[in-house]
Amino acid sequence: MGNFNILFIVKRELSLHKPMCYFLCMLAVTDLLLSTSTVPKTLSIFWFSSREIDFSACLTQMYFVQCFSVMASGILVAMGFDRYVAICHPLRYSTILTNAVVAKIGLAVVLRSGLLALPNPILARQWPYCRTKIIPHTYCEGIAVLKVACADIRDVQLKAFRTCGSHLFVFLTFCIPSLFSIITHRFGQNVPLHSHVLIANMYVLGPPMLNPIIYGVMTKQIRNRLLWFFTHKGT
């Protein structure tokens, strides 16, 4: 009802026909679609004891759940961009975020989410599944579906973590000190001045110092070459 009310009010009130409200309507539609992709089957389980779903339909539901989730994140980024333009370029706001630009952003968000979610059901279909396919969930949530595969997916998960682990650590080394710096400046009125200075220095010095260490440890080729260099240096 909340999402329908937002759509109804924005449609009726001409003064709300502006980019921020358009993005808000996109988010409302995405939320409605996300709920619609899961709630009917969930209610049928509880109300009618309909505990079966076709495997292809299950993968289709998994695709739409992930697609609409990614779509919501893209719309939030677009809303953040809208606020950036409104704050930093208020006089050019209406010329930058025209209706055509908003439509292109919305189309880009839809295409991005559709493409990013597409490999998941395709790869999930390739796994061998046992005869009894029972997932402990009210809808076809991605990891719940993969857990009923007969193959051991932990080897693949470890390989993916080893491949992407260095990027995750580097991302955290940038974000965590920055987040602490923002929070202490905003809410830490009683935090000593030297703590603010220390956190700010950690933000600019920590990542450049840790990045070569992280990538050196995580990247096999670099690690092997470094070990060879130090072990053969004296020969």
Rank of each mutant, 00 (worst) to 15 (best):
D31V: 10
A103L: 12
C164V: 11
Y139D: 07
Y22H: 02
C88Q: 13
F55T: 11
G165K: 01
I75Y: 06
P119G: 04
L97P: 00
F48Q: 13
H167K: 04
L14R: 10
I105G: 03
D31C: 12
L205E: 05
Q66N: 14
Q61I: 02
V217G: 01
F171D: 08
I105Q: 00
A117K: 02
M218L: 09
V145A: 04
H17G: 01
C150P: 03
Y215R: 06
V191I: 15
Q221N: 13
M62D: 14
H185N: 10
F8C: 13
T36V: 04
S166M: 03
T219A: 04
P90Q: 10
Q157D: 14
P119V: 02
I105V: 14
L14W: 04
I53W: 01
T163I: 06
P208S: 00
V10I: 15
I214W: 00
V148E: 11
M202V: 14
I6K: 02
Q61F: 02
Q66L: 14
F187C: 04
P192T: 04
V204H: 09
Q157V: 15
P121F: 04
F180V: 13
S15G: 02
F229L: 12
A124Q: 04
A160R: 10
G74Q: 01
I6D: 03
K11W: 15
E13L: 12
I213H: 08
L24H: 09
V85H: 06
C67S: 08
R12D: 09
L226E: 05
V10L: 05
I222M: 08
L24P: 00
T98N: 03
P90M: 13
Q126C: 07
L179Y: 06
L158M: 13
T95E: 15
L16G: 06
K147F: 07
K104M: 11
I96Q: 05
V10E: 07
P90S: 14
A28M: 03
I153E: 14
R162T: 09
T95F: 06
I53C: 05
L115H: 03
G206Q: 03
L59I: 08
L59K: 07
T231I: 06
V10M: 05
H232W: 05
T30S: 08
S94L: 11
S113F: 02
C21N: 14
F68N: 01
K104Y: 08
H196M: 08
I87Y: 10
I153S: 14
E141A: 14
C67V: 12
I214L: 05
Q126H: 08
C58D: 05
N5C: 10
R225D: 15
L227F: 12
Q189D: 09
F171L: 15
T173V: 08
I199C: 03
H89G: 12
Q61Y: 06
P177K: 06
N3Y: 14
F55S: 07
I87Q: 03
V102Y: 00
V170I: 14
L14D: 09
I176H: 04
P208I: 00
C25P: 03
S94G: 11
G80E: 04
I199G: 01
Q61S: 12
K18P: 01
T36P: 01
Y215S: 04
Y63I: 10
L198C: 12
F8W: 15
C164K: 09
V70W: 08
G2S: 13
M79S: 08
P128Q: 09
F4M: 13
Y22S: 05
C164H: 15
M202A: 11
G165V: 03
I96W: 02
